[in-house]
Structure formats: structure tokens, C-alpha cells
Nucleic acid binder design. Structure first.
Lengths: 143, 143
DNA sequence: CTCTAATTCAACCATGTAGTTGAATATAGA
DNA sequence: TCTATATTCAACTACATGGTTGAATTAGAG
């Protein structure tokens, strides 16, 4: 897990994964978009491999890499633990409730000039589905 | 994003987030489970803060930390890009198909697969629903 | 005001990371 | 066989990380 998140913490490596999502790539193909030596790219690839995120097949003199997504699923599931903190619009409300528990009185008076007046709808916190928000561009560069 | 994944790449910090999922924690409370100096724990906390994963409120002489989940959602969504590689039982089949496309003949003969387009492209975001992800225990240790 | 608790700061050390360059290895192809 | 291509290896530099210790800062409490 450490290895996986560490591998993901570098934009070069994330871009390489993006590239691999489009199919198999050789080392030089993976390295081509980046302004660095092949040796440097090779190290990045090794980091990805070490994290179990890619698999390498040596075909003659070229090394063909392919995405190995399972560790990403593990990371994804780890993050899903926290989905209740963002995937209902209740995050703010939940916060309020947490404070409420410590301060049982008050809060009954309307319009307390507080931020948000969100409707407490469908209290289904679970499901861990990615929020309807946009798929984070993912185009070309990776912010 | 670099910061977020980097913050997540350390088990100490992941455990701290786990702790924060249970509510607000002071610096010493966060540090307590770990066999390291307070100064070291403080640095970890600063890393989490720098990644935007926690918010700190100074209450008197204690610093109270709370989880800030939005960046986790971003990371989650980034990973969701790749869900198509694991969240159908088709991952293996998909794999086979990819090879099939290059080897229109029979899969029985060891054919010389040709590499495909060399331009890195981004994956299709697709549905990005978690397979059946259960919130990975979250008990005590973090594998 | 003084003592103590909560936390950071500064300096330091060992190790890891990301990059470089140049040489080594191995294979495809003329 | 000779040569060009694909890739790694080794050595080196610069800087980040994760940890230490001891002193500094700030605020609650007597």
C-alpha cells in the first residue's frame, strides 16, 4: 500500500499509468512524452512495477509494460472508507450534528445566519459511489 | 494531488486519518499510538495539513485537528478512472480481447503481437462504480 | 507570577528519491 | 559478423524524508 500510494504521488508516474490505460507500451514509448533521460524514466517504471501497478514482458530487446490494476482497486477501497465524509451533501450537516451532540440545547431558532441550509434528504450515507462530480479532467496534464 | 498521494503513502499518516475519521483529535492524541517523538508526529501532521487532508484549529494551547475529506474525493475520482480495469469480472476477458484484436487468428498459435498507437491517451472514465467495495475493516492496523 | 502542559522550532543524521552521464548488455537486422 | 536499437547498470549530485534531541513558545492552572 505504501508503495502504491508512493507510486501515485508523482505526476510522471501517474501519466505513465494513464498511457498504459490505453494499452501496452514499451519503455521508450512510456518515456517519450517526458523531458528526462531514458534511465530516469526507467526508474519511474521500476517504481510502478515495484508497487505492482504494471507487469513487464520482455519481448526480444523491448520490454512491454501493461497495467496491473488490482493494487489500484485496493487503494480505491481504502479511500472508500472515507466516502461518507464527502458523498452525501451531509458532510456539513454531519459536522453540525457532531457539535450538536455536545451542545444539546439551541439550534432550534431559524435562520441562524449559518452557512448552508441544505435539505436533509436521503440519509443513506453508504454506497461509496463516486460523487456525481466531474471525473477530474485527466486530460494531457495531471494537476 | 502529489501531496495527497504522498501523504497517503505512509502508514503512520494513514492511521492518523483513520483516527480522525472518528472525530476531532489533538496533536498529542494523534501522536499517542505511535512509538515516535511528538516532534516527529507533528511533522506527519504537517504533511497531512499540507496535503489539505486535515484542518487545524488552535484552541488555547492545544491544536485540534479534523478530517478534511475533499482531497480524498479527488484522489478517489482519479482512481475511479481505472475502475473499468477491475470492476467487471471481465478484466481477464478484456485482457484476452485486447490480445485477440492483435491476433485475429487463433489464440492457439504464438503470434507476434504488434504494439498499438504510441500516443498516450486518457482512459474512459466510464461508470466508475466500486465493484462491491466494503470499507476494508479499518481496524487497528493498516496492512 | 510561576510552574507545567501542548506544541513547534532548529539543528542534525541516515536514508531515499529524482535526476544526470557514460558504459554495459543483449538483440534485431543488414 | 557488424552495427544500430532498446534497455539497464553504476556512479554521482542535489534535495526531500523521517527520525532524533534539546531549546523555545504559548497558555492554562495554582
Amino acid at each position: 500500500m505504501d508503495q502504491v500510494f508512493h507510486a501515485l504521488s508523482d505526476a510522471t508516474r501517474r501519466n505513465m499509468l494513464n498511457s498504459l490505460a490505453g494499452g501496452e507500451r514499451t519503455v521508450s514509448q512510456l518515456a517519450e512524452p517526458f523531458a528526462m533521460s531514458l534511465a530516469a524514466a526507467s526508474k519511474h517504471i521500476k517504481a510502478l512495477e515495484h508497487a505492482g501497478l504494471i507487469r513487464r514482458e520482455v519481448r526480444g530487446r523491448t520490454h512491454v509494460c501493461r497495467l496491473e490494476a488490482r493494487p489500484l482497486a485496493t487503494a480505491y477501497q481504502w479511500l472508500a472508507q472515507y466516502s461518507r465524509f464527502w458523498n452525501s451533501r451531509l458532510d456539513v450537516l454531519e459536522q453540525l450534528l457532531r457539535e450538536e451532540r455536545k451542545t444539546p440545547a439551541a439550534r432550534t431558532t431559524p435562520a441562524p445566519a449559518k452557512p448552508e441550509s441544505s435539505k436533509p434528504e436521503s440519509p443513506k450515507p453508504e454506497s461509496s459511489r463516486p460523487t456525481s462530480s466531474r471525473p477530474t479532467s485527466s486530460e494531457g496534464e495531471d494537476q
